[in-house]
Structure formats: C-alpha cells, structure tokens
Simulated scan of single mutants.
Amino acid sequence: MKIKAYKMDGLGNDFVIIDAREKNVELNKDQIVKICDRNFIGCDQLIIIQKNQKTDASLIFYNSDGSISGACGNGTRCIAEFINKENNKETIVLTTSSGNLSSKILGKKMVSTEIGIPKTKWQEIPLSKEMDTKNLNIKILDNNKEEFFGGTSVNVGNPHVIFFVNDLTNFDISKIGPELETSNLFPEKCNVTIAQKINDRHLKVNVWERGAGLTKACGTAACATAYASKINNLTNDETDIEFTSGILSISIDKKDSIHMKGPVSDIQEINFEI
C-alpha cells in the first residue's frame, strides 16, 4: 500500500500524519508500529485525520507501540496548523476521544490549544484503588538509591503521574518511567513526569510517555505538570514547562481549563509503501 503522509513536530515531539478525509486508510497494529519505528519512518505518534461534519476534523492518535492514545496536545497543535494552511481560519476545532479541542493560530508557527478541565478523582485517572491523587506516596529511587516518596496524578485526556524533586538530574526517567507506566496502580497505564521547580513561573521536566517511551516533549504532560504544580502551591496560573528542546507555556483560566501554547514545525510531505 502506497501512502502519502506528512511529518511535523512540536518541540521535537514528532508525528507522522495521514490525511484520511478524502480516502479512508486502514492500518493494522503491525503497520502502525512499523511506521513509527525509527528504522523505517519514525515518530512518537501516528495521527490519522478524518472528516467531521461538525468540526474542522476528527483525529485518532496512535502511540509508537500501536496502542491508541486518548490525547496528544502537541499533535493537536500541529494538526491545527496543518488545517489552517487549507482554510486560513484563526480558530480550529478538532474532535478527539477526549472531546472537541479548540486551537488558536497565533502566527509565526505558534499555536495555542485549550486542553480542558483536568480530572483528579481516583476513578477518573483511573487508579486501581481509592487513593489521595494529590500525593500517591509512591516510592521511587534516585541515582544514589535514595528513596523519594510522592506523585500527584492528573488526567488531561490521558493519565499522568508527576513527581516534584529538588534535582532533576538525580533521577533516571528511563528507569522510573517504564516501571510506573505498567504499575498495577494504573490499569490504563500512565505517563510519568519528573519535575523540578526553577522559580514561581518555571518548571523543568523529563517525561516518559505512555506507549511511546522517552520523548523530547509531551504536551499533555506539560499541562498535567502545570496543574499538579498549582494544586501543590509550587506555581500559579501561568507556568513555563521546559523540555530538553524548548518551552511550552501553560495557563489555567478561571474555569480551571488548561491552555497550552508553543511552536510547531514546518509541514514535510513524505511518501512510502507499507
């Protein structure tokens, strides 16, 4: 099967995009995994764009392991820019499994997306048992094998757990992430973030993404981290979340809805056979 597709990224969080609005594209799990494999095309997530009569388009997100992702903030921002190139609308509304997400095209490859009101009840994360989601009291080990207890859990269309530590470099997300992602506590798995407060408006993070592993940036992790930081009284309503490749700016409005602003890349057309 010959496929015309596109590549985009938001702060290095990269995507293969297949536009199936005019012609349906059916892929099995093995084909999705192959497309995402960096020895073939390579990406953090595969995005399928589908026609929607009520909004600008519908999106399906697939992780690199072939599983479906409930939400993808950076991917949504990229598709908003992609569709803006067609219709030149300043506001793009996209339907996802997490609901309709509205994005504003700010120009100069900057896009802001409203992710919505986060969920914090244990059943909403979901957790396998009732717990205080503000402090799960999970034990992780730093690089010196010292124990650290914490973890705030938030659902922003997908489940997240965030640890706030004094020194980000003292924790290996590549070891901590996969262990917690598949923990029995998270029946739908989870995204794992280690965060360090730089100042009242700035957090630095490392992220292990559910179904994708280590990633240069994760939009929903930025949103979940900013909200978790606010409820833990570390930051306020506006926070810059710094990844290795740049910054996403997160704001929380009076309705408790989260907005994410950041850059997107140029659109690169690719063609391949699968």
Rank of each mutant, 00 (worst) to 15 (best):
K4I: 14
Y6L: 11
Y6C: 06
D9Y: 11
G12Q: 06
N13M: 06
N13I: 11
F15H: 07
V16A: 05
V16P: 05
R21S: 13
E22H: 13
K23S: 12
K23W: 06
Q31D: 08
V33Y: 03
K34S: 10
N39I: 06
F40N: 00
I41Y: 05
C43V: 10
Q45W: 05
I48F: 03
Q50C: 13
K51H: 14
K51I: 06
T55G: 01
A57N: 09
S58Q: 15
S58V: 12
F61P: 00
N63P: 07
D65G: 08
I68D: 09
C72Y: 00
G75F: 00
I79V: 13
E86G: 14
N87K: 13
T91Q: 13
I92L: 02
L94V: 10
T95K: 14
S97M: 09
S97T: 12
S98Q: 01
N100D: 14
K104S: 14
L106D: 02
G107P: 07
M110Q: 15
V111L: 07
T113C: 04
G116K: 05
T120H: 06
W122D: 02
L127A: 03
S128V: 06
D132V: 14
D132L: 15
N135V: 11
N137T: 11
L141N: 11
K145S: 14
G150S: 10
G151S: 10
T152S: 14
N155A: 02
G157E: 00
G157F: 00
P159N: 05
H160T: 04
I162E: 08
L168F: 07
T169A: 15
I173L: 09
S174G: 08
E179N: 15
E179S: 15
L180H: 11
E181I: 13
L185H: 05
F186N: 02
I194H: 06
N199T: 07
D200F: 10
D200T: 11
K204H: 04
V205Q: 04
W208Q: 01
T220E: 03
T220K: 08
N233L: 05
N233Q: 09
S245D: 15
G246E: 08
I247G: 07
I247Q: 06
L248I: 13
S249D: 12
I250F: 05
S251F: 06
D253H: 01
D253A: 05
D256H: 12
H259I: 15
K261Y: 10
K261A: 09
G262Q: 04
N271H: 14
I274Q: 04
